[in-house]
Simulated assay, not measured.
Amino acid sequence: MSQLNHAPYTGPLFIDVQEHKPDLVDLPPGGTARLKREKDGFAVMYKELADSVPAQGAKAGIASEIYQRFVDRTATLEKIRQKRAEAEKLAEVLRETEIALENAREGDVAVMAKAIQTTAQHIDPTVTGTFENTLRYYSQIGDKAAATRRKNEEAKAEDATPPANPV
């Protein structure tokens, strides 16, 4: 088993989106297909609106309620994106922790299987019957490697065989 070079996770363990509950949606599969997304230049456009709407918005026909809704949605979107980044990092940490724990657990299996094999070889061969499934589980990688070696050797032998003479 490989040794892990890791650091403890120091990020948030709880991601509270309760304040966004009224805004949260769960779309059906494919439900985002026709939805419009933010385009390049949004920040420049946002600054222009922030600078111009208070003085010129009414003249341009922009209702203050619509502009305020736009500003509020933009602020909510920024908060949601921050929470999503935290959630994605936490999901990454959970995936990596799962893999690291599986790796460590497989190491435990290896230690126990080797103990069983050593006991069977030197003390009591009957223990292999009791731990048959454990030994079979442990030997899977070795069995697969042996099968791959056999397959590669057969393919190599086939390639070395001269082709039959055409008639």
Rank of each mutant, 00 (worst) to 15 (best):
N103P: 01
V109I: 15
N152C: 02
E106F: 09
A147W: 03
E65D: 14
P163E: 04
E102T: 08
A160W: 08
I15M: 00
R105K: 11
T130H: 13
L135D: 00
A104I: 07
P166G: 06
T148G: 00
V109R: 13
G31L: 05
A87R: 04
I62G: 05
G142P: 06
I99Q: 06
K59S: 04
E96L: 14
I141Q: 12
A75H: 03
A87N: 09
P125H: 08
R149C: 00
E19Y: 02
T134I: 13
I15F: 00
E48C: 08
V93L: 02
I123R: 09
F70G: 08
K151Q: 11
A115M: 13
Y138H: 13
A91W: 05
D124F: 11
I116H: 03
V25L: 11
V109H: 07
D26W: 13
K151S: 11
K36E: 08
E102S: 07
V93D: 02
L49P: 08
V93G: 01
L90A: 12
V93C: 04
D72T: 12
K21V: 08
T74E: 11
A164H: 02
I116S: 05
A58Y: 02
V53N: 02
A104E: 04
A43D: 13
A157V: 01
V109C: 06
E98F: 12
R84A: 08
R73F: 07
A85E: 09
G107C: 01
Y9K: 05
T97I: 02
T119L: 15
R69A: 10
L13S: 09
Y137R: 15
R149V: 14
V44I: 06
M1S: 04
R73Y: 07
A115I: 03
M1E: 01
L13F: 08
R69M: 06
D26Q: 14
G11L: 10
K39V: 10
E19Q: 11
R73Q: 09
K83R: 06
R81W: 01
L4H: 10
M1C: 05
R84I: 08
Q56V: 12
E106H: 06
K36Y: 00
H20F: 15
N165A: 04
V127C: 10
R150C: 03
T32H: 04
R84M: 13
H20T: 12
D16T: 06
Q3V: 13
D72H: 03
D108A: 14
I62V: 15
P54I: 05
T76E: 12
Y9S: 01
T161H: 07
H20N: 10
G41I: 09
Q18T: 15
I66A: 15
D26P: 02
E48M: 13
R136F: 07
T130W: 10
T118L: 13
T76F: 01
Q117D: 11
G107V: 05
A87K: 06
L135H: 07
A146L: 14
A155P: 00
M112Y: 10
E92R: 14
E158P: 02
I66V: 13
E153C: 01
I116A: 12
A58G: 06
K39Y: 01
D23W: 04
G107P: 01
Y9D: 02
